[in-house]
């Protein structure tokens, strides 16, 4: 019975994420447009684009190899699995025992690698540039993420996300300086990983500054749809991760019934809406930074994570 419940939770979660991901991207775009005084496209526009692109025939460059054709599926598969591991409205999903933070980092790295390979496949200057920058930024973002995982693991005793959320939900840990530093570090990593302002501009094709868009310049048709979809999945995954760890209230306990699920769902949607609004305000308020300031930005996140860990050692040593 419990396995059945876990399976149902997992499938519902997956369906929710699949349906929500493009809507979330659309919402952020719409909110940004409203904040800037424009009318903005409908929040469902990304879904419409996806369905339209899926029906179109992809055009590949003459010297594209099998990498260009296989990479989008690898990236979507990895992003989908990572998103399936991060709980949304309920804990105790079927894959919860494997929802390890380091594995999520690994899956995101797999996604990134596939994307960078696709960027280099045709041999254009923009693709190579984007791939180079993406990997270089990830070199600093990944350790910051691992340090955040370290902080959670010291507090919760494990890097398993489901257990971490369970312990944070009990609230016995209180507010902690280390958690605050971890939150800041994780936010910076999230901004970099999702190619948002101030690290990258998701809405531009301005060659000199872009990272993410540069790698998928050659993609078209269903390949482009898949790339866009995995970008949406990644944004949803990160917001869900931040919501689950730092705002763990309202999530249904493992094995809870449908009523708790509905409450959890409503709370989840409220949390995501709040985060999307914050993101839109943040992106509207600040300017994109120069590419060569990004390492400083991520390096600061890394050092904050380290500082958080140090504070944690001190406080666990004292109490």
């Amino acid at each position: 019975m419990s396995i059945f419940t876990a399976l149902v939770t997992q499938l519902l979660h997956l369906a929710l994420i699949l349906a929500l991901a493009p809507v979330l991207t659309g919402c952020v775009r719409w909110l940004k447009a409203r904040l800037m005084g424009r009318r903005g496209p409908h929040p469902l526009q990304p879904w419409r684009d996806l369905l339209k692109l899926l029906k179109k025939r992809p055009v590949l460059a003459e010297n594209a190899s099998a990498i260009s054709r296989a990479a989008p599926y690898v990236a979507v598969g990895a992003a989908l699995l990572a998103a399936a591991l991060v709980p949304s409205f309920a804990r105790g999903m079927l894959l919860a025992p494997f929802a390890d933070l380091l594995l999520i980092a690994g899956l995101l790295a797999l996604r990134r690698f596939a994307m960078a390979l696709a960027g280099m496949d045709v041999g254009t200057s923009f693709g190579g540039l984007g791939a180079t920058r993406e990997m270089a930024f990830a070199a600093l973002a990944e350790p910051a993420f691992v340090l955040a995982a370290l902080i959670f693991a010291i507090l919760a005793g494990t890097t398993n996300l489901d257990v971490i959320i369970g312990i944070f939900q009990e609230g016995a840990l209180g507010l902690r300086v280390s958690l605050g530093f971890a939150a800041v570090a994780l936010l910076a990593v999230a901004v970099a990983e999702n190619a948002r302002i101030p690290v990258d501009n998701p809405a531009t094709h301005l060659e000199l500054t872009m990272v993410h868009e540069a790698m998928i310049l050659e993609a078209s048709g269903r390949h482009l749809a898949l790339w866009d979809f995995q970008a949406s999945l990644r944004l949803t995954l990160w917001l869900a991760l931040l919501a689950a760890v730092f705002l763990p209230f309202g999530m249904a306990a493992p094995g809870a019934g449908p009523i708790a699920w509905i409450t959890g769902l409503l709370v989840f949607i409220a949390k995501m809406a709040a985060l999307a609004f914050t993101l839109a305000v943040f992106e509207s308020a600040i300017a994109k930074m120069r590419v060569f300031r990004v390492p400083e930005f991520l390096g600061a996140a890394l050092l904050l994570g380290l500082l958080g860990a140090v504070f944690l050692f001190v406080s666990t040593g004292l109490s």
Binding site: G174, L175, R176, G180, S319
Partner: peptide, 13 residues
């Protein structure tokens, strides 16, 4: 005062 108590936690934060 120790961890888990609001006065301490907030001051610390």
């Amino acid at each position: 005062m120790s961890f888990g108590q609001l006065p301490y936690d907030l001051a610390h934060l």
